[in-house]
């Protein structure tokens, strides 16, 4: 098992290098640091001296890949590529355009993101599975039909509508909770967090329920279910004892892949509710064109995705004894 995990981690390295090269190409090769400086400083009447100053202040004043004027054998390390890209592997994200340390920011902003993402994740998982089980129990009846149509309708509503509508109804008309904001204190934080969490859950019900329904229906059509029914078990027992247990395999593996990405937070939810998490951090960076932060988030996102992939494979072997690792 340990050997397998190590091997998977080693496999992940070329993927991370690929991600790194893609982002480097997007940010430095398509547009030269000079272009970025001009963009940041405003286009009109920018002197070359100002550009040079900006580049020096942000550490872009080096050659891209190879430094022809090495001081002491640092022809490769004293370059933009090394400083801005290779150092990401050590989770050293450097400084944002406003001079703040990105690594520091990320570690602080992680917690508000998780405060929303984790409740949304757990509650919607339980809720969606429950709804899907109910729909599967009444399959091929009007309950099933109406349930699926409701899911499709819920799915067709833009997530922006859930947020804007929810904010308007709950905060502005009913004055139940403040419109937006955040507080590190637990008691007051609940007041701020409850609405985004509910909206996050409601927004995902349609797609989630439908997805779990297909998993359950696929499982129900299998042979062992017929056997269970043949030996006289009630439909309720079949569903809860046999189908649910076996359906947990695809559900669990799907869920595990998402868990690491919870750290990234929700882009629009956080931005609308003014929660200082990683999602709003990313949006603010995109809006103010702070490329250093965007680069850091891209790297962080792909690391988390790959961790999710590895966890998926491991969880497969743990819940399904038929799958053995390393044996082809």
């Amino acid at each position: 098992m340990l050997a397998y995990i190590i091997r998977r981690v080693i496999y992940a390295i070329p993927i991370l290098i690929g991600v790194n090269l893609i982002t480097f190409a997007l940010f430095f090769v398509v547009n030269k640091p000079d272009d970025m400086a001009r963009m940041q400083l405003g286009f009109k009447h920018v002197q070359q001296a100002d550009i040079d100053k900006w580049k020096q202040a942000h550490g872009y004043d080096k050659p891209l890949f190879y430094n022809r004027a090495p001081t002491e054998g640092n022809a490769f390390t004293d370059t933009v590529f090394f400083v801005k890209s290779v150092r990401l592997f050590a989770f050293d994200f450097g400084n944002a355009d406003d001079g703040r340390n990105i690594t520091q920011d990320i570690s602080e902003r992680m917690w508000p993101s998780l405060a929303i993402a984790i409740p949304v994740f757990i509650v919607s998982l339980l809720l969606n599975i429950t709804f899907a089980l109910i729909i599967a129990f009444f399959r091929a009846s009007y309950v099933d039909y109406m349930g699926v149509v409701t899911c499709v309708i819920l799915m067709s509503i833009s997530s922006l509508f859930y947020i804007i509508g929810g904010q308007y109804l709950i905060s502005k008309l009913l004055h139940l909770v403040p419109i937006s904001g955040y507080s590190a204190d637990l008691d007051t934080a609940t007041k701020f967090l409850i609405l985004p969490v509910i909206i996050g859950i409601v927004g995902g019900i349609g797609a989630g329920t439908r997805w779990y329904r297909t998993i359950f229906l696929e499982e129900i059509s299998k042979d062992y279910v017929r056997t269970a029914r043949a030996k006289g078990l009630s439909e309720r027992l079949v569903l809860f004892r046999h189908v649910l247990k076996n359906a947990l395999v695809p559900i669990l593996t799907g869920v595990v892949a998402v868990i690491p990405l919870l750290f990234m937070g929700s882009l629009i939810l956080e931005s609308f509710f003014g929660i200082p998490g990683l999602g709003s951090y990313t949006i603010d960076a995109i809006r103010s064109q702070d490329f250093a932060i965007v680069r850091a988030m891209v790297f962080l996102g792909s690391v988390l995705y790959i961790i999710g992939l590895i966890l998926t494979d491991i969880s497969y072997t743990m819940v399904d004894p038929r799958i053995r690792l390393g044996v082809r």
């Binding site: 993927i15 690929g18 991600v19 893609i22 982002t23 997007l26 940010f27 398509v30 547009n31 272009d35 970025m36 001009r38 963009m39 286009f43 990405l261 990234m264 882009l267 990313t282 995109i286 064109q289 490329f291 965007v294 680069r295 988030m297 891209v298 996102g301 792909s302 995705y305 790959i306 992939l309």
Partner: peptide, 27 residues
């Protein structure tokens, strides 16, 4: 190739590409 592309969060890849395009168009 597809695992690498997939591992970049979609919105961020789009954002990165569009930001680059913006700089390019502006210049």
């Amino acid at each position: 190739i597809y695992t690498t592309l997939n591992s970049i969060p979609g919105v961020l890849l789009i954002a990165a590409a569009i930001l680059s395009l913006q700089v390019y168009l502006a210049n």
